[in-house]
């Protein structure tokens, strides 16, 4: 299991990286933390002409508050996501999700931007970005644009980024009064890809859910907002009846594929169980 030969370019800036990508004529691959790219190279599942290492680009790092929005640089490592106080206070779902991503040593290298750009349907962070209604700042040769998380994840490993574009930062909207959240996943072993996982964020006002966003992962080709379940819960008091209705509504929200080791019906069942538990948890923290 040794990688095929490739060149290595350490990008000095986003512009340099974009230029290098263009020069490689579709044969370049960006390297962030490398924890998905490097094993896929070792497995010889791809053979790029060159890797363009983004880790030395200052513009892609840093965590800061700006006008209530939290900016998380795309090269922020999972371990920082788990430990950074700004993230804990302003993007709590990221803080809760990070310990579920693989194992400690992986979290020391893996980057949030790498995870979002790869868009593995079983990854935690894409669902978190959805539930947080984050916006993703993408740099391309035509400039910088911001894409809502809802519009970002398109399909299995497919995002709204064009080939060569670089995810620069994640912007998380300001925290609202009464905001609560919950995150969990059902995995066979600690750190495994989840059978089902979900991130929930809600705003509780006078015992009602003024707002809620629910995002599932590992249930289909991309992280998925549970719009029907959200609609059932929104503006309602959280009680067993509402939870049951939300669970029932998931059938319309989720479209898991049918696999020998995990039939679609089982994933739907697990999604309902997980949603019930998360909403119950939300109830106690509200």
């Amino acid at each position: 299991m040794k990688s095929p030969a490739f060149d290595y370019i350490r990008a000095r800036s986003v512009a340099h990286a974009l230029e290098a990508y263009r020069d490689l004529d579709g044969e370049g691959v960006y390297l962030a933390g490398g924890h998905s790219v490097v094993p896929s190279l070792a497995l010889r599942l791809q053979a790029p002409a060159a890797l363009i290492d983004l880790s030395g680009i200052d513009a892609l790092t840093g965590i800061s508050l700006d006008d209530g929005w939290l900016r998380i640089g795309s090269m922020t490592r999972h371990a920082e996501i788990a430990s950074d106080p700004l993230i804990r206070d302003h993007a709590r779902l990221f803080h809760l999700a990070a310990p579920h991503v693989a194992h400690p040593a992986i979290r020391n290298r893996g980057t949030v931007g790498g995870s979002l750009s790869l868009a593995d349907p079983a990854s935690e962070f894409p669902a978190v970005a959805l539930a947080l209604r984050a916006e993703l700042e993408v740099a391309g040769r035509d400039g910088i644009r911001r894409v809502k998380a809802d519009d970002f994840f398109l399909d299995i490993y497919e995002t709204a980024m064009e080939p060569g574009e670089i995810l620069q930062a994640i912007f998380v909207p300001p925290v609202r009064t009464g905001e609560v959240c919950a995150f969990d996943e059902l995995a066979r072993r600690r750190g495994d890809y989840a059978m089902v996982g979900a991130a929930v964020q809600a705003v509780v006002e006078a015992g009602r859910l003024a707002d809620i966003s629910i995002a599932f992962f590992s249930v289909g080709n991309k992280p998925t907002r549970a719009g029907a379940a959200e609609a059932v819960l929104r503006e309602n008091a959280m009680n067993d009846t509402a939870i049951a209705a939300a669970q029932a509504a998931l059938d319309a929200d989720l479209d898991p594929s049918d696999e020998p080791q995990m039939p679609a019906s089982v994933r739907r069942h697990l999604a309902r169980v997980l949603l019930g538990r998360l909403l119950g948890h939300l109830g106690t923290t509200a």
Binding site: H35, V38, H103
Partner: peptide, 27 residues
């Protein structure tokens, strides 16, 4: 395993444990 799943290759990089199989020497 050469894919970050077994932990046999952990070394400290900048003081933190990382999988030496998932980091390129040039990195």
């Amino acid at each position: 395993c050469e894919m970050g799943a077994c932990g046999a290759c952990l070394v400290l990089l900048g003081g933190k444990p990382v999988h030496a199989c998932l980091v390129l020497a040039v990195q």
